[in-house]
Each structure stands twice: as structure tokens, then as C-alpha cells.
């Protein structure tokens, strides 16, 4: 199969069925049996159905869905904590499912690290030892472990807490330890399974800022699970929406909001603050305007609106990197802001 150089992780026709005779159930699932029927008639649980997803390198791919939609199951296929019933998972052109146990361990040690919803820290080890856990598994000696660990402890803002046990820290601090532990192995892929869902809203925003700040420098390939749409829109370069084990839509945040694939996605996005999410680029006309204020293509509608009302103009020039790229009218902003029914 051809591998696009920009794609880091490819998931192809992935199926996961839970139950004693999962392999025999694939044909029913491929034939399109519903999750309920599979459970009632065959006593098997459908985890994932025909997932196809390309995760671009150095991007944040958000996978979102409600609980039970299969998002945690999906992320665990990427480092093969869960074995699929059928399908392929390819990372950098390498088939994860063909790996021997030894190769798989090597892959987990060096290529993909993970952050967990419940932190999953070792309560009998200190912050420093937890951060260095991945390194100690690799057999790196203590001095180097401490030095590399220290760097990440400082980066996530836990300087001074090295000697504490994790049970003495607050939730937000614990997840900083979890994040530092995942970063310390220098893995290119970061798997984050609802990392901030257990934190209260203010701390959650803090942690999102830390992650986004780190990402501007580190350019990791991040696969981020969440059930929180605001978080998904804030963090994701691309969002995949999962429902009952199926990917109902994959696209950029702008795509998802402007063009929801079905009623389920539309229902999902109906309560967001559109003015703070939709960017001018999504609604602009290619035709350039003669006058009016200049707004950058990535400006959100709220800000563009304020600018235009301030300048008393009902049309603005949209710029990309300072160059005029099109125009936007007050009317189209108002249309975009109105909630679709």
C-alpha cells in the first residue's frame, strides 16, 4: 500500500468486536448488523466498525465522541494495547499488527507514549521517578534518567516537586507528571486518552495551554481523545467524530462546524459559541473588496464583527499573510452566527 509521507498513522478498515468468538462475527458486522442486534442475537459487543483514519504528522488529531462511542478502544489500537478483530494499523509505513512482542515493546518505548485519563502514575515512586519511568524501562542509567526527567519536570512547571510522591499532588499536578512522563521518552507520537477530562474546568484550560505551548515547539503527532467539543475545537487540527464505533465525520474544526455530516454531528455542535470558533476564512467570498477594514483569514467572527462595526463598514477585506485574499460581508457573518435548526 502506498504511504503518503505526510501521514504518520494510518488506520485501515479497523474492526473491533468484543466477545468469545469475535472473528466469526466480522461477517455480520461487515454486512451491517446494528450494535443492538449484534448484542441481542449473537451476544457480542461492537467496539469499532470500519474505521479509516489518516493522522497527519506533527498535527493534533482529536477523536471525539460520547462515552461508549469507542474512542478509548480506538486509541489503544495504535499502540496495540488492544488487538483488533480485523484491519490494519500502520505507523510510518510499518504494520503494528505484524510486530513481534519484542518489536512491539520497542515501538512503545521509543515511538509512541501515552497519557491516561486517570493519570495512571506509580504511587510508590516519586515525581522524578514517575517522569523517568519510560526511561527506566528502556534501561537508561540513573544519571541520564534524572537529567532528562528534570528537563521535562521543569517544562511542565513542577520544579521543586521532584521528591514528592504523586499521591500528595493535586489532579492537575498529577497530570503534569503524566504529561512529562510521556514527553520524557522523546516519542514522536503522543497518545492522549481523555487526559484532561478528570480535571476541573480552569485547570483543564491551563493544561490545554501547556499542551499547545509545548506543541508549537515539539511538533509531535498527537492523537487526543475527548468528549468535550470546546476542547476538541481548541486543540485539534483535525477532528474525527465517533458514534457507536463508527467514524461519522472527519475534518478540520471549521469543516465540522460549517458542514456537519449528519444530524448527529449537527446536534453535537449546536450549543457551541459559533462566533468564537468560526473563522472568517470559512465564510469569505473569493471576490476582493475595494474598501473596509482588513481582517486576517483566521480571525474568528466575533472579532471580525467588532472590527467592522467599529469602522462602520459592512464589508471587510480578508487577508492571508498580509495579502488580500477575499472579502467578507456583515450579512454573511450574521448568517453564519445564526444557529442552524
Amino acid at each position: 500500500m502506498g504511504t503518503n509521507p505526510g501521514v504518520k498513522v494510518q488506520i485501515r478498515s479497523l474492526y473491533k468486536i468484543f466477545g468469545p468468538d469475535a472473528a466469526a462475527m466480522t461477517e455480520h458486522v461487515e454486512a451491517g448488523i446494528s450494535k443492538e442486534d449484534l448484542l441481542d442475537k449473537h451476544a457480542h459487543v461492537l467496539g469499532l466498525r470500519n474505521i479509516n483514519l489518516d493522522v497527519a504528522a506533527h498535527q493534533v488529531q482529536v477523536i471525539m465522541g460520547l462515552s461508549g462511542s469507542g474512542k478509548s478502544t480506538l486509541i489503544r489500537h495504535i499502540n496495540r494495547l488492544i488487538e483488533p478483530t480485523a484491519g490494519e494499523v500502520i505507523v510510518d509505513g510499518e504494520d503494528i499488527l505484524a510486530m513481534t512482542p519484542l518489536e512491539l515493546r520497542q515501538f512503545r518505548r521509543s515511538k509512541a507514549s501515552m497519557v491516561f485519563q486517570g493519570f495512571a502514575l506509580l504511587p510508590h515512586r516519586t515525581v522524578a521517578d514517575n517522569v523517568a519511568y519510560g526511561l527506566s524501562v528502556q534501561g537508561i542509567d540513573k544519571a541520564e534518567r534524572e537529567e532528562r526527567g528534570k528537563r521535562w519536570i521543569d517544562r511542565v512547571g513542577l520544579t521543586g516537586y521532584e521528591g514528592y510522591y504523586t499521591t500528595h499532588l493535586s489532579g492537575g499536578m498529577r497530570q503534569r507528571v503524566g504529561l512529562a512522563r510521556a514527553l520524557a521518552t522523546d516519542a514522536e507520537i503522543l497518545l492522549m486518552d481523555e487526559p484532561f477530562s478528570a480535571l476541573d474546568p480552569l485547570i483543564r484550560t491551563d493544561m490545554q495551554d501547556i499542551l499547545l505551548g509545548l506543541q508549537t515547539e515539539l511538533h509531535k503527532t498527537i492523537i487526543f481523545i475527548t468528549h468535550d467539543l470546546d476542547e476538541a475545537l481548541r486543540i485539534g487540527n483535525s477532528i474525527a467524530i465517533l458514534r457507536d464505533g463508527e467514524a461519522v465525520q472527519v475534518g478540520t474544526p471549521q469543516d465540522i462546524i460549517m458542514r456537519p455530516a449528519d444530524g448527529y454531528v449537527a446536534e453535537f455542535i449546536k450549543d457551541i459559541n459559533r462566533g468564537r470558533v468560526i473563522q472568517v476564512a470559512s465564510i469569505m467570498d473569493a471576490e476582493k473588496a475595494d474598501g473596509g477594514p482588513k481582517v486576517d483569514a483566521e480571525t474568528v467572527l466575533d472579532d471580525a464583527l467588532q472590527l467592522m462595526i467599529g469602522s462602520g463598514s459592512d464589508i471587510a477585506t480578508v487577508t492571508r499573510n498580509g495579502e488580500p485574499a477575499g472579502s467578507v460581508r456583515l450579512e454573511s457573518i450574521a448568517t453564519a452566527l445564526a444557529k442552524p435548526d
Binding site: 499502540n79 494495547l81 512491539l104 515493546r105 520497542q106 515501538f107 512503545r108 518505548r109 521509543s110 507514549s113 501515552m114 491516561f116 485519563q117 486517570g118 493519570f119 495512571a120 502514575l121 506509580l122 504511587p123 519511568y133 519510560g134 527506566s136 524501562v137 528502556q138 512522563r181 521518552t185 497518545l191
Partner: peptide, 22 residues
């Protein structure tokens, strides 16, 4: 805790590393 064990797996711990370390 299952999640802690899963974390050990996710970081590539071998069975002896999991047994004696976790």
C-alpha cells in the same frame, strides 16, 4: 490498578519489569 498496569504496558515494560516494578 488496571490503568497503572496499562501504563506500564504502554511504555513498553516487559513482564519482569511490570512484576517487580509495579
Amino acid at each position: 490498578d488496571r490503568e497503572v498496569l496499562e501504563a506500564a504496558d504502554a511504555f513498553g515494560a516487559s513482564y519482569p519489569q511490570k512484576l517487580f516494578g509495579v
